[in-house]
Design a protein around this nucleic acid. Structure first.
Length: 460
RNA sequence: GGCCCGGUGGCAGAGUGGUUAUGCAGAGGACUGCAAAUCCUUGCACGUCGGUUCGAUUCCGGCCCGGGCCUCCA
């Protein structure tokens, strides 16, 4: 089954072929750990999680290496530490833990390798030395800068020439730059700032070099897929690519560059600086299940802008109710989906540039089939539904848990006692009492459903 | 100024040179003591003006509108 993805480098959809099908390699830019992840940050995590699952399905679990870094050295972390009067390690460690919790809640698999910037300072220094030796970087006032004019085809990815950059009004030219487009590889650290000894004095790395160093360390000089949010195309990925190619003397850094679109709020990009963001943590605390957030994030195509709001989350919740509802009648006898059972329609949708909305519609079709299926057909239908959902990272818990899980002031024994009471009333044809019990429960968030096998309940 | 995305029914959101997306919401029906869930039926679309074509929501061009990037960003 051929995979094809839209490649930012060529601005075309291209069929995907890994350099080595035994070892498919993907790098995705991870979080800078200074604050909770907002849903804009969560989008690439979920999108590339689906890609990871798809690649593992196609090439085999053992043949895909997914690297996603943790940026734990950055000036924003310094600022946060100052503001909150906390140590840097305290901030990076607690933020990393919170990130893991939140992304686990979204059903994202952990990457194969999750390298930290602070663990790769030596590799960064070595790479910078290499760039200086090769004439692609120079030292000035304790800084090391990448020389943009030293690279003839700089700007390939973002389609921006060095001249465009220099013409741009927002380029701030530090006095030590030889060329306005040059960017920092290493900068000096003041007393009290984190720093590492280097040939250029005590300092810390610039923003882009860490990804170049970590991807080379864990994936090699060239690899298959490099992913991230659209806002990383320039300058981050452009500069990463420049560093890596110049240091290694390669034609390509990654062969396929994939970028997800923004999460927007009322049509505007969600961002820290605009202050219009919702954190995953916040939504979870409001009672939105991580799976609901995940489905919402997959409800649009990954390259399109996606508006996430409470209406969309409510709709995602009802979609999940429907999907889990189709599985519910199978009770304990849910089949264990195998790799072969993955429905073709869903696989085709994902294979075509990760068309998750189309894949979700396939899921709904399967749920519909399951709802209509005879008892003998049910197992097969359920298996297909579960196998498809697994590829999207959905429907991974027992349906009863989906419907009955959650916290509130009613315990299960109490609910079941009231249901028994109502059953007795119904048997006595005392429908007034029966309906009163049902209404009372509904007011407390418990919805009763009378089926052929008796009454079942769920939390709304 | 340069570069780049979008505009689909009440809402969300795929897709296609001719024919059902899908989900939510709406209408009617089946089932039910009544509901809920489910099933059946059903209405409602492609910003605008041109061009190409037997035929354009789809391809091309202009225009209008919205958004993004141009060294904080996922």
């Amino acid at each position: 089954m051929p995979l094809q993805f839209y490649n930012t480098l060529t601005r075309r959809k291209e069929s995907f072929a890994p350099e080595d099908p035994e070892r498919v390699r993907m790098y995705v830019c991870g979080p800078t750990v200074y604050d909770f992840a907002h849903i804009g940050n969560a989008r690439p995590v979920v999108v590339f999680d689906v890609l990871f699952r798809l690649l593992r399905h196609v090439y085999g679990q053992a043949h895909v290496t997914y690297v996603r870094n943790i940026t734990d050295v950055d000036d924003k972390i310094l600022t946060a530490a100052d503001e909150q009067q906390r140590s840097i390690s305290d901030i990076t460690e607690s933020t990393t833990a919170a990130f893991h919790e939140d992304m686990d809640a979204l059903g994202a698999l952990r990457p194969t390798v999750e390298p930290r910037a602070t663990g790769h300072i030596d590799q960064m220094i070595a790479m910078i030395e290499d760039l200086v030796e090769k004439g692609h970087a120079y030292v000035a006032e304790g800084h090391v800068l990448f020389s943009v004019p030293s690279m003839h085809d700089y700007g390939q990815l973002s389609r921006r020439s060095r001249d465009d950059l220099v013409a741009g009004a927002r380029v701030e030219v530090a006095p030590y730059k030889k060329d306005p487009a040059d960017f920092v590889l290493w900068k000096p650290s003041a007393e009290g700032q984190p720093g590492w000894d280097s040939p250029w004095g005590r300092g810390r790395p610039g923003w882009h070099i860490e990804c170049s160093a970590m991807s080379a360390e864990h994936l090699g000089e060239t690899f298959d897929i490099h992913g991230g949010g659209q806002d990383l195309v320039f300058p981050h990925h452009e500069n990463e690519l420049a560093q890596s190619r110049c240091a290694h003397g390669t034609e390509r850094m990654a062969r396929y560059w994939l970028h997800n679109g923004y999460v927007v709020v009322n049509g505007e990009k969600m961002s820290k600086s605009l202050g219009n963001f919702l954190t995953v943590r916040q939504l979870r605390e409001e009672g939105y299940d991580g799976e609901v957030i995940r489905l919402a994030l997959l409800s649009g195509h990954y390259r399109q802008p996606l508006d996430i709001n409470r209406e969309k989350l409510a709709e995602s919740k009802s979609q999940l109710d429907r999907l889990y509802g189709a599985l519910r009648p199978l009770g304990e006898s849910l089949p264990e989906p195998g790799e072969e059972g993955t429905p073709e329609k869903l696989l085709d949708a994902l294979a075509d540039d990760l068309n998750t909305p189309l894949a979700l519609s396939a899921l709904h079709d399967l749920a519909h089939d399951l709802n209509k299926a005879s008892d003998t057909e049910k197992a097969g239908c359920a298996e297909a539904l579960l196998a498809g959902a697994r590829l999207l990272g959905l429907l991974e818990r027992p349906p009863e848990e989906w419907f009955k899980g959650g916290e509130d002031n009613l315990d299960v024994a109490e609910i079941e006692r009231l249901i028994a009471e109502r059953l007795a009333a119904r048997k006595a044809r005392d429908f007034a009492t029966a309906d009163r019990i049902r209404d009372d429960l509904l007011e407390r968030g418990i919805l009763l459903e009378d089926g052929a096998q008796g009454t079942s309940w769920r939390r709304k």
